[in-house]
Amino acid sequence: MRLKQISERLSLQPVNATEEMLSADVTGGYISDLLSDVMANAERGTLWITLQTHENIVAVAVLKELAGVVIVNGRRPSEEAVEKALQEGVPLFVTPLSGFEVAGRLYMLFHAEEIQG
């Protein structure tokens, strides 16, 4: 599923995303607020849902080749994070929804796609 499709369906607000970034393919979701956990367990191409807002999220997203980062509960990424994300080409999104809600909706999107084939 394309990142653009997901961000539209879940009404995620892009912070820095260009059209090119939004055409990227997303393979699944991952939700965690522990950077070490994401480093150890998140799979390449997944969209990372988190409450963390500081710049290290960008480094983790780059290292793990994640599709992007969704910051939940109305939090805003730090200025440093936004700047770094621009440099590294990592799409950041914000949403007032909770982590549970975003994970739930994203899971259902993928599930629906599976059923349709």
């Binding site: 607020d33 522990l34 950077l35 070490s36 409450l51 963390q52 290290n56």
Partner: peptide, 10 residues
């Protein structure tokens, strides 16, 4: 960071 990894400092 180590405090964040323990679930605090957010």
């Amino acid at each position: 960071d180590w405090v964040r990894e323990m679930g605090w400092g957010a």
